[in-house]
């Protein structure tokens, strides 16, 4: 019952069928990201759940003098988007990368043609993609289910969003680079225990 009996008679695969390594890496990292559940639950789930709660409170739909005639729900929309970015950038990304470092995965990758940089690149791309999905979800659900206002200046909104996303992901990389022990990471930014 060999689980990973190494190749007994190694034979090279017929040439011409190599899988693109970067794509395979990205696909594998994405599978793991979803399987880990932390990123999807906190980065996508929490902002949407909060939106549903806020949207269901009648007083959130009343225009308020103190907000310049805006209602609370519209005020909270950017906050929810920022929350999704922060959870992905400051929690999901550093906890994945720090565990990769602790387990020697980045070192192992350094000994393969793929190198550790592309692992970081794949993770950044996945988190950025998730942030886009989270933003679309918050805006879409807010608009269709609760009549929340959409950004009035889409181009400016996209620019500010991108700056925020890049800043938070960069912070996440910094945390992953300096956080050595489990404890520090969990104490600082981790919203919940995973394992």
């Amino acid at each position: 019952m060999p689980t990973a009996s190494a190749p007994a008679r190694p034979q090279a695969l017929p040439a011409g069928t190599p899988e693109p390594a970067t794509l395979r890496l990205a696909a594998t990292e994405l599978t793991l990201f979803i399987r880990e559940q932390i990123g999807p639950i906190w980065g996508l789930g929490l902002p949407v759940v909060l939106l549903v709660i806020f949207g269901s409170i009648p007083s959130f739909h009343h225009a308020r003098e103190s907000l310049g005639g805006q209602n609370l729900l519209d005020t909270y929309m950017p906050v929810l988007v920022a929350l999704a970015l922060a959870l992905l950038g400051l929690s999901a990304l550093p906890s994945i990368l720090a565990s990769y470092r602790e387990r020697g995965i980045l070192r192992r990758m350094s000994t393969t043609p793929i190198g550790p940089q592309r692992v970081l690149g794949a993770q950044l791309a996945i988190h950025l993609g998730m942030a886009i999905i989270a933003t679309a979800l918050v805006l879409g659900v807010g608009r269709t289910a609760y009549g929340a206002a959409l950004p009035r200046q889409p181009a400016m909104y996209a620019l500010v969003w991108l700056l925020a996303a890049v800043a938070l992901l960069a912070l996440g990389l910094l945390i992953a680079a300096i956080a050595r022990a489990h404890g520090w990471r969990r104490a600082s930014v981790r919203p919940s225990s995973s394992r």
Partner: peptide, 20 residues
């Protein structure tokens, strides 16, 4: 060196073989 906890054996082999 270890691998991600939730990575399956076949996925690891497929991933690594794609590097070469």
């Amino acid at each position: 060196s270890q691998l991600p906890e939730r990575l399956r054996v076949g996925e690891a082999l497929r991933l690594f073989s794609s590097f070469y």
